[in-house]
Amino acid sequence: MDQTDVRGLLFRGAITVSAAFGDDDEEIPAARALARSFLTDLQAVHGFPVSGRVMGMVQLVVSELVTNTRKYAPGPCLVTLEVQHGAVEVSVWDSSTTLPAVLAQGPARIGRHGLEIVMAVSKSFQVQREPVGKRITAAIVLADDPDGDVAGHKL
């Protein structure tokens, strides 16, 4: 994100970034790189606290959600990262109308734990039908403070 983009984001009062990704597996690391760049700018340019935990969790959530779109939804996906109420909201839109399902646990089940992981590390998780497809949004708290207080920049 160049300086012109950052000034535009500040002027509108939002700190957000979006990118569309194609339908091949090479897009998954590109989506993680988008998240890493967004969080680096969030800290360096805007003064928000971004711990190693937050950096890892946001990239994990982006990776799991984009991986699901690659497996279960045809076509491109749109990833949006936005700071809202002391958390980074990760939204992934895809073209499939099929809502995700968390499978029952069992000792014979191998893999397909992505949504469970996302839900476990997120402050909130929601699935929303769109006019075309669906949007999955998960929020990861920026604060590492056990009381939930955001250190640094206040929203």
Rank of each mutant, 00 (worst) to 15 (best):
V54I: 13
V54M: 12
V54A: 01
M57K: 11
V62F: 08
S63Q: 13
V66Q: 13
T67A: 15
R70H: 13
K71M: 05
K71Q: 08
Y72R: 01
A73R: 05
P74Q: 14
P74S: 15
P76Y: 14
C77M: 14
Q84C: 10
Q84W: 06
H85D: 15
G86A: 10
G86H: 01
A87L: 02
A87G: 08
V88Y: 07
E89M: 13
E89P: 03
V90K: 00
S91Y: 11
V92F: 06
S95D: 12
T97I: 11
L103Q: 02
L103T: 04
L103K: 11
A104D: 15
Q105F: 13
Q105D: 15
Q105E: 15
G106V: 06
A108Y: 13
R109V: 03
R109D: 01
H113R: 15
H113L: 15
H113K: 15
L115G: 07
E116S: 10
I117G: 08
I117V: 15
M119F: 01
V121Y: 03
S122N: 04
Q126G: 08
Q126H: 00
V127M: 03
Q128L: 02
R129H: 00
P131W: 06
V132S: 14
K134S: 08
I136M: 10
D144R: 05
P146G: 03
P146R: 06
P146D: 01
